[in-house]
Design a protein around this nucleic acid. Sequence first.
DNA 1: AGCCAGATTTTCT
DNA 2: GAAAATCTGGCTA
Length: 209
Amino acid sequence: MIHSPKQPTSAKLPRRLRRAELPQDTEALARYLIGKTLVRETPRGRIIGRIVETEAYVLGDSASHGFRGLTQRNRSLFLHRGHAYVYFIYGMHYALNVSAGAKGQGTGVLIRALEPVEGIEQMQRNRGIKNIHELAKGPGRLAEALKIDKRLDGIDLCTAKSLWLGDALAPPAPISTSKRIGITKEIHRPLRFYERNNPYVSGPKRLNQ
DNA sequence: AGCCAGATTTTCT
DNA sequence: GAAAATCTGGCTA
């Protein structure tokens, strides 16, 4: 192709969420974020996804990265609510959390899946695949699709230009809960939240009913 | 659709 | 030194 026409943009840019709008309670924040938007601004353009799956890592939760206190890796989890905690796992994947609670609390919400809304071609390029259903289905894929890595660790999602939380473009369908995925401690707690019947949600079928 | 092994490196014990 | 908030491809059915 000779000319590359500018990507179509969605009619409406989400409104940035203010910190005061984010629920103080970690589990409430995980529920609240379902249906909200995650906006990534890059030199190549804007990427917008609708949050369809989250997990809460709450106070006193031995599955939480913050459970054993502050370390070099998890320090962003101890920031005031609304900051990005980006960690590297399994030797090859990044994952994004929103820090929750008060400064020093060490709780957060893992963003597990997005429904692509805008910047789909860029997501396809970042991921090296075409299938829209697999662009951001799972925390590692989501990070790759949005080019999220350590450089974004610790940024304030309520003020940053490069990555931020926006309001819902449309109200979410009913929210279901299940056990969390991929953990070995506190495995029965119902702290995973997802939009029911949404095909962009990750995980096995038995957890998505 | 479900199970399993392999990839690969940071992090903390 | 072991475990890890995962993903992919290959196999079975």
